[in-house]
Computed example of a mutant assay.
Amino acid sequence: MSTPEKSQYSPSPTVILEAQKSTGEQPMELFIVDEHTEHYLALQAGGDFDRGLLTGVLGGMGGCAMIGLGLIGALQGKFDITYMTFSIGIPLLLVPFLWETLRPLPLPILFNRRTREVYFDHNGELFHSPWDGISAMANEFQLVGTQIGAMQSASLEVRLRRFKQPDTALMISLGAPFGKSLAMQKGFWEYIRAYMNNGPYFDEHGNHSESDAFVKSQLAVRFKMSDSFKHTLARIMQAKKEAGGRNYLGADDVAMLIIEPMLYPQDRIKEFTYSIAKRRSRNRWPSLVTERLKANGPTTRLVDLE
């Protein structure tokens, strides 16, 4: 299943992963899946993973605090304070929100189960490939630096062709390679294979399952900052149970109980801003793609239209 091939990262051989052949690894999600639905799988591509952070910091920490002070002033009849704080707080929340949601996010890499094909947008040009017969190239390499030492990394790439111009091909990376091993990338390829071949839901061995329990357990590993306080409370309650009445709170626990509720508005606003920006960006897909993502859309592949 392996074929030596030149890689853009190192001269070591590249492992070819195929759509119909197992790698022997168990399916593993690597914090790349943005949407896992019955009809398509969306992988984050490009950058802007921190979209919404500016709105969260300015709006959550500054804007909400100023608006809160204004509401307190209004309850006390001090409307001059309300006008002043609202005039500062509302722009702090609204301006970065509009700036971050109106700028389009990079479109994701789409794996369509219904038509069994892959889509990718590159600078407004549509690239695609049928799933059947597709192959991915995985290559393991090391990054060496004085600060990081030797960091093991592995790339995972697929080749797509430009719509109506099949002579133009593009290699796209399924997530950043840094900090990933070859086994991890093979596991992620198995996740995609299980979804396309046996999905939409599957078990830990990649076999079809009517239950979405395993998929949910994989997607739940991705940490959400807005859930940090909930996780801290769960950890403290577990420590209390294990302590059996003894003192179970440490200084770090007390600090987290104070800081995390203060950061909650910032984290929730960041996540909300990202979701709005993502929803708006979907309109940038051509109708050929969007209609094929619908449950009752066409089942013809783009390659059949060329």
Rank of each mutant, 00 (worst) to 15 (best):
residue 126 L to P: 00
residue 129 S to H: 12
residue 145 G to T: 10
residue 258 I to E: 05
residue 210 E to M: 11
residue 217 S to L: 14
residue 48 D to N: 15
residue 254 V to L: 09
residue 149 G to Q: 07
residue 102 L to S: 02
residue 66 M to K: 06
residue 138 A to W: 02
residue 110 L to N: 01
residue 95 V to C: 07
residue 83 Y to W: 14
residue 161 R to V: 02
residue 40 Y to Q: 04
residue 188 F to E: 01
residue 79 F to Q: 12
residue 143 L to I: 13
residue 13 P to H: 04
residue 286 P to R: 05
residue 70 G to T: 03
residue 83 Y to N: 15
residue 147 Q to A: 14
residue 285 W to K: 08
residue 239 A to T: 13
residue 45 A to L: 08
residue 39 H to W: 12
residue 190 E to R: 01
residue 256 M to I: 09
residue 208 H to L: 05
residue 65 A to Y: 14
residue 163 F to I: 06
residue 17 L to H: 02
residue 159 R to M: 15
residue 64 C to W: 10
residue 26 Q to H: 14
residue 30 L to R: 00
residue 118 V to A: 05
residue 115 T to P: 02
residue 106 P to W: 01
residue 213 A to Y: 11
residue 279 R to G: 12
residue 201 Y to C: 00
residue 283 N to K: 13
residue 64 C to I: 14
residue 270 K to C: 04
residue 55 T to E: 07
residue 220 A to T: 06
residue 301 R to C: 03
residue 269 I to E: 00
residue 74 A to M: 11
residue 282 R to N: 11
residue 94 L to A: 13
residue 126 L to M: 01
residue 228 S to E: 10
residue 120 F to C: 07
residue 261 P to T: 00
residue 131 W to N: 04
residue 77 G to M: 09
residue 58 L to C: 08
residue 81 I to W: 12
residue 196 M to Q: 01
residue 235 R to F: 11
residue 188 F to D: 02
residue 147 Q to G: 11
residue 90 I to F: 07
residue 31 F to H: 13
residue 17 L to D: 00
residue 278 K to P: 05
residue 214 F to C: 01
residue 51 R to C: 11
residue 76 Q to E: 15
residue 106 P to Y: 00
residue 247 N to R: 09
residue 211 S to F: 06
residue 67 I to K: 09
residue 66 M to H: 08
residue 113 R to F: 03
residue 36 H to C: 00
residue 57 V to M: 13
residue 201 Y to T: 10
residue 8 Q to K: 15
residue 262 M to G: 03
residue 43 L to D: 09
residue 34 D to G: 15
residue 241 K to E: 13
residue 289 V to F: 03
